[in-house]
Amino acid sequence: MPEAQIKMNVREAGHNASIIDVQGELTAFAEDVLMDAYNQATDGQVRAIILNFEGLEYMNSSGIGLLVTLLIRINREKQRLLTYGLSDHYKSIFQITRLDDAIAIHDTEEEAVRAANSA
């Protein structure tokens, strides 16, 4: 399989949340990178994972499938999944795939972190 064209950086956002900065292409080949980032982000008492999509350059339907399986894993751990930085194009894809029913979409990091730490 081709190599994943994606990088993810994990950082803390207060006591309850971690942010994963997504940079590159979200396709089936990104699975290991995404799950490694989640494992790193979920250390400790993290109650919310925030995906920063400002650096998202490309996504196909397998990438959307990865987000669904990540969401299920996060729900199983009784955590929440939030996002910010989606362009209008990717917001539309979240709408058509109906991911927006289950994943909170925020415009800015500040809003997402506030929402993550408010519950």
Partner: peptide, 27 residues
């Protein structure tokens, strides 16, 4: 119907995303 009609001015002037032609539009 598409929500693209509701795009911000900034978004309208951005180049088409690389995957833009591959996705169905919202209905």
């Amino acid at each position: 119907q598409t929500p693209q009609d509701e795009m911000s001015e900034e978004e309208k002037h951005k180049p088409e995303p690389r995957d833009g032609a591959y996705w169905a539009r919202y209905a």
